[in-house]
């Protein structure tokens, strides 16, 4: 063994080329992503920023496998100030244990930042999903410190414009829809820079249906639809 190899083995020397150290993480459930994320999944004990162009491109489906795994293991998940109603049937269908999920409504920016900090400091929250319209660097820094003290996965959903601002997050990803798929670009991570955007094979709602649409009916009653073999709930 050469002295260099010996040193590298004995001391925790950070190497630029090697992507990551052994950081604590929750597997994301997507092999493509886990391979590029430090620790092999969503980092815990630090902020993860998810910057999306718009809503409805799969930003939640990206986190669902991790949330399902956490909740079924009895860990608690908090959704803080979500922009719409989190839809229980869809979450349950994805395998999330709803008994371990709580939604917190916070009217103002200060209240939501306060609630996020309380949740992280309580030690009883293992994943925090938060939607902040805007937050200053100092406020995010405060959250990052609280996140470090906890062992929680903290995902902050922020608008794409926030990518230009500095951030204390240990992972920042930008989401883009590309030909009906979700492309994830890692803007910042612990370790070396990531190169190309990753195509993440999300579970599409269309797979469950496996059918292309027929022309929209102008009118029709349930009996007619039944004879066509289309789903009817009545």
């Amino acid at each position: 063994m050469t002295p260099l190899e010996e040193i590298l083995q004995r001391h925790p020397v950070w190497r630029g080329g090697a992507a990551f150290s052994r950081a604590a993480a929750v597997p994301s459930g997507f092999a493509v992503l886990d391979g590029e994320l430090p620790g092999g999944g969503w980092p815990t004990g630090g902020l993860t920023e998810i910057l999306g162009l718009q809503q409805g491109i799969g930003e939640l489906r990206l986190l669902l496998p991790a949330l399902a795994a956490l909740t079924t293991a009895g860990k608690r998940v908090i959704w803080l100030a979500p922009p719409h109603l989190p839809y229980a049937p869809a979450l349950a269908a994805a395998g999330v244990d709803l008994a371990r999920l709580a939604v917190v409504r916070a009217p103002g920016r200060r209240d939501s930042l306060w609630a996020a900090e309380q949740a992280l400091r309580s030690g009883a929250c293992h994943a925090l999903l938060a939607w902040f319209r805007n937050a200053s660097y100092a406020e995010l820094r405060r959250l990052a410190v609280a996140a470090e003290a906890s062992c929680a996965l903290v995902a902050l959903f922020r608008p794409r414009e926030a990518a230009r601002e500095p951030s204390p997050a240990c992972l920042r990803i930008a989401l883009e829809p590309v030909q009906g798929e979700l492309a994830v670009r890692i803007l910042k991570r612990r370790g070396a820079l990531a190169a190309a955007p990753l195509r993440v094979p999300l579970k599409s709602p269309l797979h469950a249906l496996g059918r292309s649409p027929s022309s929209p009916p102008a009118s029709g009653d349930a009996r007619a639809r039944r004879s066509l073999g289309l789903p009817v709930h009545a």
Partner: peptide, 8 residues
């Protein structure tokens, strides 16, 4: 149910 959205 059938396919359902995560946001309502």
């Amino acid at each position: 149910p059938g396919p359902r959205p995560l946001w309502l």
